[in-house]
Write a protein that binds this DNA or RNA. Sequence first.
DNA 1: CGCACATTTGATCCTGGTCAAAAGGCGTGG
DNA 2: CCACGCCTTTTGACCAGGATCAAATGTGCG
Lengths: 246, 246
Amino acid sequence: MKNMLLAPPQTCGDCPIRHRAICSKCEQDELAVLETLKSYKDYERGETIVWAEEPLTHLGTLVSGVASLNRTLEDGRCQIVGLMLPSDFIGRPKRNSVAHDVVAATDLTLCRFEKPVFEKLLSNSPALLSRLLTMTSDDLDAARDWMLLLGRKTAREKVAGFLSMLVRRNIQHDGMPSGRGIELSLPLTRSDLANYIGLTIETTSRQFTQLKQDGIIELTSQRDIHIPNLANLFREASEPDIALNG
Amino acid sequence: MKNMLLAPPQTCGDCPIRHRAICSKCEQDELAVLETLKSYKDYERGETIVWAEEPLTHLGTLVSGVASLNRTLEDGRCQIVGLMLPSDFIGRPKRNSVAHDVVAATDLTLCRFEKPVFEKLLSNSPALLSRLLTMTSDDLDAARDWMLLLGRKTAREKVAGFLSMLVRRNIQHDGMPSGRGIELSLPLTRSDLANYIGLTIETTSRQFTQLKQDGIIELTSQRDIHIPNLANLFREASEPDIALNG
DNA sequence: CGCACATTTGATCCTGGTCAAAAGGCGTGG
DNA sequence: CCACGCCTTTTGACCAGGATCAAATGTGCG
């Protein structure tokens, strides 16, 4: 067998992302209902979870792994318009399709509900509805941040900006690192990465070697990065380093 | 006086955007409550309605005119990350600031609520909450569409794509045009437009003259455009012309 | 009419794209 | 354990689309 996925949690109480997913505002009684209606499904790296413009049958939360939202033009040009990490919500209620493919960037596990079932839950649970609004608003803010990166930043800033984004999302959930440095593991291939930041693989690669030579990052392996100084990275990304204060 | 704005409607019943704004799903009783709490405010072209990272005191709906959401870097580079047209909702509940300036691109009128007041309304009205979720999801879809344009499209496609987007939004509200052609009035200066599609004013202008020479568009005045054939425009934008069917 | 500002046009430069080849990783099988 | 082949990533040489700098033209308003 190609790959063993971690066994998904059996109960919501054990769920590692329980406190930041769509269900995080639900009380015990609501949670009990969700528990009976959810089901887990695993996908392998490269599998398409949802096809653009095709009927959307399930909605759900990413429990582990990484997925990308891919928008592709007829001639093959591709832009990744969203990166889904554990606890992110995938799909859109009250719509029978979405405009992008959802693709497993790594092996991953989904906690799913059938779409009509979830829609009914939503209409009966203000906690769920309000949490989904907050998460959607956060996604919108992130998308707009990314528009600035795509529209106005240089290749070097784009790569540094991507790494900064990953660091921020790590910090958000794991807390501040003890020292000033930090370890990072890339969840994307160079090709995905390029499609996410609006460059070619070649320029992306070149910028990586540049940042390495300039001491901003250190590659411990193909996928693992050590960042000796976060402030330096944020500066290269032309981002305010608010994540370091507060 | 520099400019007379249209008098805003006195009652929600007269409101021109009543059926597609945040309040469109409210019943008469809820509407009556909103009526007592709303207030109108006019802004002149160029005025900043909300400053990025500054306390957000009001939320509301754009009644008339156009506003842009501007994200600006320290060195002056600017990207417009959203274009607000009448009926769009401005601001974010449960957050005390936003990451972008909101700027009046034309003279405009807002239908506003004080933020804490609106938040209370939201928590008591599923109709309001659910409508806001739908609108936010639509904004997210639009932002992701735009990421594709910013990250992967050529200058010519970007300009054509901008015009296509305007046409679609017009059609959405006014219905299909009778003939195959359509009139369009640009709500943005060249500079705003360039900042929206991630180009300089110079390239934007060059692409306009190109599209003009190629017969895709005809400029009747600086701001007014005639599009003889929509399908041609959509093709230049590398967009599927779904808006023409259905 | 004349001034201020927006837009267009022109000439040149440079960042990132393209095409091509080399180097590095990794799994399979001898 | 190593050799082979496949695929990903890096590096190189060259090209081109859009940026930059500068000037001309157009437009609205006092």
